[in-house]
Design a protein around this nucleic acid. Structure first.
Lengths: 100, 100
DNA sequence: GCCATAGTTCGAAATATATCGTACAAGCGA
DNA sequence: TCGCTTGTACGATATATTTCGAACTATGGC
């Protein structure tokens, strides 16, 4: 569990981004990451089981939206804002505005 | 077939938009509608069966992305650009730039 | 080393989605 | 009205996705 696979930003495909954004649970995660900057998985479960959250974080990671790094015993997640802004200018900002 | 149900723009939900955008076939439709302004369903099938295309156009309509109106024997589709720009400022432009 | 904590992985069940063939409906022109 | 064209509606199948429990892994503190 040492390291996670994150796609290189240039390999991120728009359809994967949109798929990742098509679930209400994941939109909630995105919203809260945008508001709080960074958060552990456990901090964002809404009483949902760990395995469910793990699944959603993985979808977000694989899509290229979220970066996860181990920090002690927890895993900190944050949006890949700068990279995404370079790859898809304006997209993340418009998404965040849309789901605010 | 006289009239289609299009959601009122204020009822359009971001997650439905993103789901509609999560399929390569539909992204292709969006791309071509953006480039050509308006097009019939048949004009955009890539050799796919009519029933498949009909399904995808329905998803796009239900999501609020596309407006369809009967025009003689064909059905003209176009992006709901202005409405979407009001409801979700910057979103459609960023999406079109991302999938260009 | 042992235990607790934080997440991942696996497996299963329910639901949703994509795809396509066939049948149907609506408009247009002869 | 008949035939042609365009697209929808229905039904079936294959594949994905969501959800969750249970077992497992990694880290930190004692």
């Amino acid at each position: 569990m040492r390291s996670y696979k994150h796609p290189a930003i240039e390999d991120v495909r728009p359809e994967d981004i949109f798929h990742a954004l098509s679930d209400p649970v994941r939109l909630d995660i995105i919203r809260r990451l945008a508001a709080e900057g960074a958060a552990s998985c456990a901090a964002l479960d809404g009483g949902r089981p760990k395995s469910s959250m793990s699944h959603h974080f993985r979808v977000l990671r694989d899509a290229g939206l979220v970066h996860t790094r181990p920090e002690g015993v927890t895993h900190m997640n944050q949006l890949r804002r700068d990279e995404l802004a370079t790859r898809f200018p304006g997209l993340l900002d418009a998404v965040l505005a849309a789901i605010a």
